[in-house]
């Protein structure tokens, strides 16, 4: 069946290599103990917020932290919703 399937171009892209790549990236993080990034991220988030709070009132709930782990580079995205700033002296 699978022989015929591949003859007729069904499922030409195999899924096993995708599985291997995904596991390699994931396990590379978990084995080195980097799997527990949340402590670092917690600190980063707290400190970044602290700096921003010196200047603007930020709602703790309006902060989103996003992560996309890659093979060599990971992307950390911290999204802070900043309330509308009014010129000082106005209510």
């Amino acid at each position: 069946m699978s022989l015929f399937g591949s003859f007729f171009g069904r499922n030409t892209k195999t899924s096993a290599p995708v599985a291997r790549d995904r596991l390699q990236i994931l396990l590379a993080h978990e084995r080195t103990g980097r799997g527990n990034e949340s402590d670092l991220l917690n600190k980063l988030q707290a400190e970044i917020l602290e700096v921003i709070k010196r200047h603007i009132a930020v709602d703790q709930d309006k902060v989103q932290v996003k992560l996309d782990r890659g093979n060599s580079v990971s992307m950390l995205e911290i999204d802070i919703e900043v309330p509308q700033m009014r010129p000082s002296g106005q209510p």
Binding site: R22, L41, N42, Q60, V65
Partner: peptide, 21 residues
């Protein structure tokens, strides 16, 4: 979604993160 996990259920329970995060 394995590459996008930042916080988890335990973080939420222990108050380290909001549910929405």
């Amino acid at each position: 979604a394995e590459r996008r996990v930042v916080f988890d259920l335990i973080n939420v329970i222990q108050g380290d993160a909001k549910l929405s995060q």
